[in-house]
Computed example of a mutant assay.
Amino acid sequence: MLDADSHAVLQTLLRARHQHAGAELTGLVAPADGEQIAAIQDALSAELGWAPRSTATVWKAGAISDGSPVCIPLPETAVRTQNGSYRRGLLPRVGVETEICFRLGRDVSAAEAAAMDDAAVLAAFDALCVSIELVDSRWRIGMDAPEAFKLADHQSHGGLVIGDWVANSAHDWQAIALRVTAGEHGIVAQRGGHPCSRPTWVLPYWLRHVATQAGVARKGCMVTTGSWCGMQWVEPDASGVTVAVSFEGVGSTRVRLYR
């Protein structure tokens, strides 16, 4: 249940979305703990008509600044396939995060998830794809907002662009080459770089979290697993700019961004 401070944060986030204007933090008290943050996320999802946490099929997982893992349900309506388009939200720029997304290949009960080792967890995912998370914020100060406020705002989620699914297989994640371009300009070219050395590190935590919430993690659920190269900021003009991401041996995806 939301306490009074968290209810005020919820109402502020709803106004920001409905009025399409960045919200001020003045007078707001940060959510007290992870339970209140999740309650704000759930209430926001209910108000906006998104799937509740117990039936959500799209998730983001990763670590916040102190290294703690987090799992956040996302709206299915925010998912775009490659070559789609996205218009800038409340921030003056579009944040781009380069990620790998995994898809669960079968139902996994809470009891089974609790007993699985990391290898068994990874084997439960049948496919993966290159993905781009688009970052937006409902707070006027954007990414300078304190962590708890960003988490309440679904960790500043704006949209998720997914590439073609390919069969899940082993990769040398620490040596894999990736490239990010915006229009004609290369903005990232590196090998490896995931902050936790591999994107699969968070999958056991995510699977147990989701299975516990609903009693079972459902086949077809997808989860994106954290940015490889931090936040890349893109400032599209009225004619738009195409952001493309590729991972050697895995695939690619792209999205057209507009002002």
Rank of each mutant, 00 (worst) to 15 (best):
T242D: 08
A56Y: 04
P92R: 04
R218A: 04
W59K: 04
A115Q: 15
R17Y: 01
S85N: 10
D136K: 11
A152H: 10
A211R: 11
C229D: 11
L28H: 08
F125G: 02
A148P: 14
D5Y: 05
D117A: 14
F149H: 02
L122C: 10
G62F: 01
F102V: 10
G159N: 01
A56L: 10
C221H: 09
C196Y: 12
G67V: 09
G158N: 03
S239R: 15
E35S: 14
E35C: 11
C229L: 01
V216S: 09
G230M: 11
L257K: 12
S156L: 12
G193V: 10
Q232N: 15
L14E: 08
P195I: 09
F102M: 02
D42T: 14
N83K: 06
G142I: 06
C129N: 00
V250G: 06
I162P: 00
Q82N: 10
K60F: 05
E147G: 02
I40C: 05
V121N: 06
K219Y: 08
T77E: 13
A123F: 02
D164L: 11
I40W: 04
T225M: 01
V96N: 02
D144P: 05
V241C: 15
L257M: 08
G163H: 06
L90G: 03
A38Y: 13
V108T: 05
A170L: 13
M1P: 08
Q19N: 11
G193L: 12
T200S: 12
S169R: 14
A32W: 01
A61S: 14
C221V: 12
L128R: 08
S227F: 09
T55K: 12
G22E: 06
L10P: 04
W165Q: 04
L91T: 14
A211P: 10
L160T: 01
W201H: 12
Q82A: 14
P92H: 07
A110T: 06
A120Q: 13
L104Q: 05
S131H: 02
W59G: 00
E133Y: 03
I37P: 01
